[in-house]
Amino acid sequence: MPYNIIVLIKVIPDLEQIKPNPTTGEIVTERTPLRLETLSENAIEAAVQLKEKYGGKVFGLIFGKPESAPMLKKAFAMGVDDGIVLTGYKGNNPVYTAEVLCGKIKGMQYDLIISGNQSADTYTGLLPGIISGKLGINLLGNALTIALEDRKIRVKSTLEKKIQNLSATLPAIVSVTQETNQPRLPPVMQIMAAGRKQIVTEAAQPQTMPGTVQISNRAPRSERKRQLYEKPEEGIAAVARAIKEEIR
């Protein structure tokens, strides 16, 4: 049977391009190029695979900034049917993000919500649980595989030391891991078709984020010696001495 799937998509600054201010160490990301968050790509792939297998529609939901809008086109190219960008993201606060997302989701018809289990920029990993709690739907976290049958969902959930086989009734929220799948590279035709699609944006509600006061956001200090030997044969003796010193 066909399923309506909502996939939660995060847009983040390209982590490899973030550079701290050389004198203060403070991190500024305003001008850093944006990209789809790694686990969100796995979530999109999981949603599209389920649609291909069982039928239905995939709706992409981004809570970001107006600049995040083009990223929804990438999701369309991967097979997401429709979507919206909620604007007004002010910073990492999973409770507020969940409130904004749930406000939108409550007015929608859905069977399943899919997200990444821990985003590559903040690693909070709390959003799936908070959304599950707020919407009162079942949470099946850290899914390696997802199977649907009528109103039932089964996942293999990967924990640190074991894999649990979980089952529950829909609606539910599932989080996926980086190992769940290999996100597809969409063919050119689909990229071009996605490029022509209209992107709908909407101001996020509520607009005020409760919360935390940032004291500092700095690169961790590194006091390494950085003795680099470009001709390794010149360095082996020195490095062996240093190693012997540490393992005495």
């Binding site: 999973p94 821990q118 709390l126 599950s132």
Partner: peptide
């Protein structure tokens, strides 16, 4: 993995 999901639920509900 299960700790974060548990914490999320405690925060969400």
């Amino acid at each position: 993995a299960i700790g974060r999901d548990t914490a999320g639920l405690l925060a969400g509900s």
